[in-house]
Simulated assay, not measured.
Amino acid sequence: MKQIQFALEDLWKRKWLSLLLWLQCILLLFIANFVIENIKDLSNMKQEVNRLTKSEPIYYFYDLTTEKQLDQTLNQPKHLDDYKAIYKKIYEKKDSRAFSLYTTTYPFDLQYFEPNLRDVIVEGHQVYIDVLPFANASFYDFAQLKLSQGRYFHQDEIQTTKQPIPVVIGSGLAASLQVDSEFTSDEEHYRVIGILEENMSYINLAASKDFISLDYAILLPTPVLEDNTDYYALLSGTMIPTSNEQGIRDTMAFIQNQGHVSFVYRDLSKQMPYVMEDKKKWIQMQLMLTILISIFTLISITVSYLQFIRKYTFELGVHILTGATKNQIIFRLCSQLIILFALANSVVFMILHRFQISIMMTVISCMILWIVPIIRIRKMKIDQMLRRKS
């Protein structure tokens, strides 16, 4: 216990250097976490795409609509029937399996939610939560969702005008809402019919290379579409699982004939090589940064150890002369590093809410950094220590 006290005193004596080393440890742990998580994401991404495209292709709409086209059509009520025709062509066919990954944010009344919710924005009396407003049954299959409570939407609840509107919520919102709980947003009234299991997510390779968590999201059945903007939002995120590519070509031709939006279709699996390459480059950049910071941190802490041993050699010798063992002195020196990493781990845990990777990185770093003081103290004799009074 006394050696830990001495270790704390040593860190305080060199408080500015200790602060620098502590910040380096935090940075090292953060980057290590991001690198490992990205490597995991890369592996999960491969598995997810293989699953999605194993049985049949999934086609998505790549939007080439210009701002001029949007200005000419979105604000013109006369084009609403054309958008409705496009919607029916895609979504109201008997065998349609189309779904949309369009996401937005809705303001809900704060009184129904816990005030300390993570990953949401609170402004005044409203809380802004991510919403998937077109989460039909096909999306349920696409994302392989699982429910911890309740149920998913029935077919007769799609595009319903009845109040309250049924919703499915992420697991992170379950602390505020339960099945059959009701809440409001402006003039809309909602009722929870299901709660997703923890860590449910999906990936939209057409738009990003990351998994999108649903823990703090709300899923709606397709709302009643009222204007051109609603239809465009739905179409711009549309995906269609099908083996009938000719049917997709016919749909595209129909859309182009309307003349209001410009889409081309692409096979999701053919997008994969580009996304994977982009992801690999991102990981390589992070890995290189981690290596550089690791080297810098290791050198800094090693130099700090050597300076401390050289400066306090006489004091360490006196401790040994008065009954301390070399093992206790080594423990004192090694404890400094444990304290720095323990404080760094607490910061990382508070922000990232995970510690496995940080602990692993801490153990590896300590094993490397302890080599210097252990060898140095082991090799020094007591008479050499006592002759080195600074």
Rank of each mutant, 00 (worst) to 15 (best):
Y60H: 03
L147R: 10
Q256K: 13
L42D: 07
S262E: 09
D82V: 10
A137Q: 14
V264I: 14
K94Q: 06
A324M: 06
I295W: 02
L369Y: 01
W282H: 04
Y232W: 10
I374A: 09
Y152F: 15
Y140M: 10
E92P: 00
F113K: 01
M367A: 14
S181C: 08
I283S: 03
Q256Y: 06
L337Y: 04
Y312I: 01
S208A: 11
I31T: 13
F183Q: 07
S304V: 01
K46E: 13
L110S: 12
D82T: 13
V348H: 02
Y106E: 02
V35R: 11
V120S: 14
T105G: 00
S100T: 09
L343M: 07
E277P: 03
N228S: 11
Y102G: 01
K68Q: 11
M385E: 04
I371C: 09
K326P: 08
Y231L: 06
L205H: 02
D63N: 14
E187K: 12
M239E: 05
A344W: 10
Y91F: 15
F99H: 02
R51Q: 03
T161N: 07
L220A: 07
A217P: 02
L117C: 11
T161M: 09
M239G: 03
N50E: 15
Q246S: 00
R266Y: 06
P107C: 04
I329D: 07
E245Q: 11
C334L: 12
I212M: 02
F263M: 07
I377F: 00
K379A: 12
F61L: 14
F211K: 00
T73G: 13
Y87G: 00
K46R: 12
L235R: 03
W12G: 09
H319D: 05
L74H: 11
T53C: 08
I359D: 04
R388V: 02
V261F: 15
M288A: 13
V120F: 00
V275S: 10
A143L: 15
V264A: 07
A207Y: 04
D71Y: 12
M288S: 08
A233Y: 15
Y274Q: 03
P373T: 09
E67V: 02
E37Y: 03
I195V: 14
D81W: 04
N204V: 07
V120Y: 05
F139K: 02
R378L: 05
L369H: 07
D156K: 08
D383V: 06
L132G: 04
S262R: 10
G237D: 11
G194M: 03
G317M: 09
V131M: 04
Q3M: 12
V167M: 08
T297H: 13
G124T: 11
L219F: 11
K40D: 12
D230Y: 06
I320L: 13
Q72N: 14
K68C: 01
Q336G: 14
H319F: 04
I4D: 00
A135L: 11
W370E: 09
T362W: 04
R332K: 13
Y190W: 06
L19E: 04
I330Q: 10
I165V: 12
S208F: 05
I218L: 08
C366I: 15
L287Q: 03
I26K: 01
T302G: 11
I351C: 01
A98T: 03
K389P: 01
Y60A: 09
V167N: 04
Q149S: 08
N345F: 08
D186R: 15
K209I: 01
I218R: 03
L292C: 14
K2Q: 06
S358G: 01
I218W: 09
Y202K: 07
L11K: 02
I90C: 01
R387I: 12
I39F: 14
